[in-house]
Design a binder for these strands. Sequence first.
DNA 1: CATGTACCTGACTGTTTTGTCAGGTACATG
DNA 2: CATGTACCTGACAAAACAGTCAGGTACATG
Lengths: 156, 156
Amino acid sequence: MKITAQEEYGLRCIIQLAKQKDGEPLMVRDIADREGLSIAYVEKILWTLSRSGIIESVRGPKGGYRLTRPCSEIFIGEVMRALGGIPSSEEICGQFTGNHETCVHHGACDLEPVWASITDFVNSVFDRIPLSQLLQGKLEVKMVQLTPKSQANLVG
Amino acid sequence: MKITAQEEYGLRCIIQLAKQKDGEPLMVRDIADREGLSIAYVEKILWTLSRSGIIESVRGPKGGYRLTRPCSEIFIGEVMRALGGIPSSEEICGQFTGNHETCVHHGACDLEPVWASITDFVNSVFDRIPLSQLLQGKLEVKMVQLTPKSQANLVG
DNA sequence: CATGTACCTGACTGTTTTGTCAGGTACATG
DNA sequence: CATGTACCTGACAAAACAGTCAGGTACATG
């Protein structure tokens, strides 16, 4: 179970945008400096995020990137999914080329419920944390609660 | 956030061993057949698992691999960690080469608490599920409860 | 004690992910 | 309307991961 580089760096970049006052665009060069990444790489990551509509670009002098919404209305889950994100249990099972007869056709997959519970939970946590919360020192989420689906799987 | 092939296939292989009656060793060839994987690949995965002491090999004719303990005493978390596993938040932060001055020295990392909460939870779920539970049709865990550490991070 | 079975292990290849490069396009300003 | 700034984008290079291959070692059996 791995956090990808896109996710880590993508979140860091968008946090830099969230720290910006007003709607002032922030230059790629500044983000790259602050996070210790190359300009080219930051450009690539921001381009990915802008395709999903979470951020937008301002061209020309004094240009840069900025959030399309206030940072209190942008949740980490949305950002993670834009960056490649958390696969669903169906995607995990479909991704691996093993014995599909047992798993898919006979409905005898032992692992699907495990992946379903984990990915469901991760999504539910990420969808509760707005960017604004990351800017404060302390991370807070009102309540940790599983979705009905993962409860059915996990809680006996 | 990705499940690696090692994790998926490693779990599948060890589930096959758990299904075996008594302490009978199961041949690599049989596991490979049942899961639709190559023999060479299954050998590699099982070798990894045997290094961690979860399974052991029996050489010669009628040999194979078997669990070192009853399947009710082997938890998924242990298996996942042997397969490369869930990194800690420290490992995630150390893995990426960005701006360490901000993150490490100034203690101003915005993401560490997020990774800590997620990895903590994933570990706590995996450490509650013994292999024996995967063999039954329904996955059940007594209670979903966060560790004190991740509660402090997530619950305001 | 020879033989066959089946595990053991390092080296190798192919594919995906990560990160770089180079040249192009759009906009603000004077 | 020329110029410089800064985003845009596809193609490429390098590193990590997935999966294969080949030859070796240990054990049970007759």
